[in-house]
Simulated scan of single mutants.
Amino acid sequence: MLLAVHHVAIICSDYETSKQFYTNKLGFVVLAENWRPERQSWKCDLRHGPIQIELFSFPDPPGRPSRPEACGLRHIAFVVASVEASAELLRSRDVEVEPIRTDPYTGRLFTFIADPDGLPIELYQDGV
């Protein structure tokens, strides 16, 4: 029935800041960008390889509960070839990177960063 994840939709508080983060820091490319006047909202389709994000802006969105662990979507995770190399690249782009850890169940390396609104983003070395 289900074949794949098509996209992840993210609502941001500052559209330009978030768009710059996803394009300049993480390397996503803008596929389409549309102003929706009836909603006073931007919708931006971003792609990085097979990963697609829909970035939305809305007037005065409520904050996202994150910590302590809130119910709902916890984080998004991206597979990387090397957590160490990815962390080094992101630090060179002024992105704060948490310490690299090892998953106790899989032995894989992972770390977290956050987007401009604090959305946790995991970088996971899957061995692919």
Results as ranks from 00 to 15, higher is better:
R108E: 02
F56Q: 05
R101Q: 12
E33K: 05
P59A: 13
E96F: 13
V97A: 03
V79R: 09
F28I: 05
G72Y: 04
P68E: 13
V29S: 15
P68C: 11
P50R: 11
P68T: 12
S86C: 09
N24R: 13
E33Q: 10
A70R: 11
V83G: 01
R64T: 07
E84V: 07
E69V: 15
E16W: 03
P116L: 06
K19W: 01
F112M: 06
A81H: 09
C71N: 13
D117P: 05
H48R: 15
A85K: 14
L46V: 13
Y124A: 07
A32G: 10
W35M: 02
P62A: 04
E84R: 08
F21A: 00
L55G: 06
I51T: 15
E33P: 01
R36W: 11
Y124H: 15
R93Y: 08
P62T: 02
R93Q: 14
P61C: 03
Y124K: 08
L123F: 02
R64H: 10
N34R: 15
A70D: 09
L46I: 13
R47T: 06
E84F: 06
P50W: 08
G118H: 08
E33N: 04
I113G: 06
G107Q: 08
P104K: 00
V97R: 08
D45R: 05
S86D: 06
C71F: 13
S92Y: 02
S92W: 02
F28L: 09
R67W: 14
S82V: 11
V95E: 03
I100M: 07
S57A: 10
R108D: 04
I76L: 14
I51L: 14
S66I: 15
G27K: 01
R36D: 07
A87N: 04
S82N: 14
A81L: 01
R91M: 05
D60H: 13
R91A: 04
Y22R: 06
R64I: 08
Q40E: 15
D45Y: 05
V83A: 00
Q125C: 00
H75W: 06
V79I: 12
H75E: 12
T102H: 02
R108P: 00
Q52G: 02
Q125D: 10
F112C: 13
E88F: 04
A87D: 08
E84L: 01
G27N: 01
I51G: 08
Y124V: 13
P62I: 03
T23N: 07
L46A: 10
W35F: 03
T102E: 13
T111V: 01
N24A: 15
H75V: 12
Q20H: 10
P65W: 11
P104N: 02
R67A: 14
V128I: 07
T23A: 06
Q40A: 12
G72A: 03
S18F: 05
K43H: 10
I100N: 06
S57C: 10
P37F: 04
S82Y: 10
S18N: 07
